[in-house]
Amino acid sequence: MGYDAKLRVWRGDDEGGELKDFTVEVNEGEVVLDVIHRLQATQAPDLAVRWNCKAGKCGSCSAEVNGRPRLMCMTRMNTFTEQETVTVTPLRTFPVVRDLVTDVSFNYEKALEMPAFQPPAELKPGEYRMAQVDVERSQEFRKCIECFLCQNTCHVVRDHDENKPAFSGPRMFIRAAELDMHPLDAAENRKEFAQESQGLGMCNITKCCTEVCPEGIHITDNAIIPMKERVVDRKYDPLVWLGSKIFKRAGA
């Protein structure tokens, strides 16, 4: 049944703002984004909100709902009681543009610094052969919808702007891992790059990123920890490093 929900939404811009209270109708089966849209259509036409697919596939509508980093389109209203005030605020780690929209360009700048996939010189298009079991490891990381909730929740940069230049964040660690585990990537220094240029060493594995990932990617266990372990291997044992590359080629 429909009811009137108490909603508290942050409104403002880069110069400041405040939480504003609204009462908005909620119907059965709705999610937070539906209610934000109704608020926009009926009471606050200029309420800024970023969204796109409304189906949990594009990663646009990231915000903090009652302080928890969430996709608004994937947060059902019936996970709150009808009496509860639902508070919606912009992602804290990124600068506010307006209302619920933040400037996420940090993530795109880090992506620009990430060395790209390097195709194998000896293979022509159409000649790539890879085993399903080998591509699956990287495919897990390529499920990433770039909602940047992991970047937002990571305490290395949350409230620590000073760490941002040296730290690329979980999103970029899984990109590094994805390329490192790509059966045919010809680049050979993914782990070293992650350690030396992306700030992998600053991560102390609290798994906050994994917890907020809407795609259920095992960011810490499957990407960060193996990368950290292998960085250690390589640093101390060049033969292990050489062997792993040769093995990878042979199995490809």
């Binding site: 926009q40 036409p45 200029d46 309420l47 800024a48 909100v49 307006r98 929209v101």
Partner: peptide, 12 residues
């Protein structure tokens, strides 16, 4: 009609 300002204004 649009209400509000020009920065990130969905009604506009």
């Amino acid at each position: 009609a649009a209400t509000g300002g020009r920065a990130y204004n969905p009604s506009w």
